[in-house]
Amino acid sequence: MRIERELMRGAGPVAVLKLLESGAKYGYELVEQLTAETNGVLEVGQSTLYPLLYNLESQGLIKPQWQQADSGRQRKYYSLTGKGKKRLSRDSKQWQAVSEAMLRLGVISDPHIEPALEGGA
């Protein structure tokens, strides 16, 4: 499923920040992980990912570093900064609040309680 552009604009940065929380990653790795871990929902092309990374870099949320990969090739790894961690924490809470609100409104359904709801009905 393709996500609306405006929605992606809000979800993309926080998704990237979340992926970087576990450690430094390079561009292709991020693309792969975003696709794999979101079942393709948050799949982004290079033309979207790199501007997104540069924007996060300009805000001081991530910092790049050229490093040699295991293959011997030079790659640009991005890692979270202190400011980035704070932003991720704040954004996560906000997304959590939005999700809960959507859940209560019935816009989304909780996969854990769905059977119970169905059973109760």
């Binding site: 092309g45 290079q46 033309s47 979207t48 790199y50 501007p51 997104l52 990374l53 540069y54 924007n55 870099e57 300009s58």
Partner: peptide, 20 residues
């Protein structure tokens, strides 16, 4: 194909890079 439109990509990259 996954790279997308070069003009759009260039525009977005420029905008983001200039901010840095």
């Amino acid at each position: 194909e996954s790279f997308g439109d070069t003009t759009t990509a260039a525009k977005l990259i420029r905008r983001a890079k200039v901010r840095c």
